[in-house]
């Protein structure tokens, strides 16, 4: 279970302070599918990265199964990102000099301890995503749809409980978008993972059983995930 309690994030720079998130309160049950929408600059990415432990909020609490992420050390926060969260980003961010297969293994190799079975797990994941015949290709030798599927396979490397997707279809045409969205639905419905997805597209937004809308850093709609104050 994920809980956000009065989360505020302010970016301070020489040009002044930007309030990217103001007083966000959410309660997301395990296994939910939540979509986040809002105009550009409304704080969607900031919200997602805050949940993922990449941004420490200026004030407020982010709780994962009762643990406040702010209290975790850098090392534990890294382990949280590595094992509990799978990130799928708009621009894929595959490592350019690694093959699809090796990219999929990166989160596994960042995990302390367990070093076995990486190859088998990576093969199984790429197989599941229909990339069995593209394993040894470098990212630049893959189509955008294939690259996004490699990114999803990589996000699943350590079998995370939560998938955080930031506009995963933003760079894809409608057919490919539908393909990626159905993969994400599978991850939610078949695997029972929590999926939180930022999107611009209304159809994609309709996929979520729960819905959050941000405007100017404020949560103006929190259908089914509103926390009772």
């Amino acid at each position: 279970m994920l809980g956000l309690e009065r989360v505020t994030k302010a970016y301070s720079s020489r040009r002044g302070t930007v309030h990217a998130l103001r007083d966000i309160c959410l309660k997301i049950e395990r296994g939910s599918f939540v979509t986040i929408t809002g105009p550009s600059g409304s704080g969607k990415t900031t919200l997602l990265l805050t949940i993922g432990g990449l941004i420490r909020p200026t004030s407020g609490r982010v709780e994962f199964h009762g643990t406040d992420l702010c209290t975790l050390s850098e090392r534990h926060l890294a382990a949280y990102r590595n094992q509990k969260i799978g990130f799928v980003l708009q621009s894929f961010n595959l490592i350019p000099y690694l093959s699809a297969y090796e990219n999929t293994m990166v989160p596994m190799s960042l995990r302390n301890g367990a070093t076995n079975n990486h190859e088998q797990k990576a093969k199984a994941l790429l197989d599941r995503l229909g990339l069995a015949d593209r394993m040894d290709h470098l990212p630049r030798e893959l189509s955008v749809g294939q690259q996004q599927r490699v990114a999803i396979a990589r996000a699943l490397g350590n079998d995370p409980e939560v998938i955080l997707a930031d506009e995963p279809t933003g760079n894809l045409d409608p057919t490919l978008s539908a393909e990626i969205l159905s993969i994400l639905r599978d991850l939610n419905e078949k695997d029972g993972r929590t999926v939180i997805m930022v999107t611009h597209s209304p159809e994609a937004a309709r996929m979520g059983r729960h819905h959050v809308r941000l405007v100017d850093g404020c949560c103006v709609e929190a259908d089914g995930v509103a926390a009772t104050r």
Binding site: E74, A78, Y80, R81, N93, I95, P107, L110, R111
Partner: peptide, 14 residues
Amino acid sequence: RREIGTLLTLGATR
């Protein structure tokens, strides 16, 4: 830089 960001996101420590 982007690769470093990706590694940190995927759970690498600094």
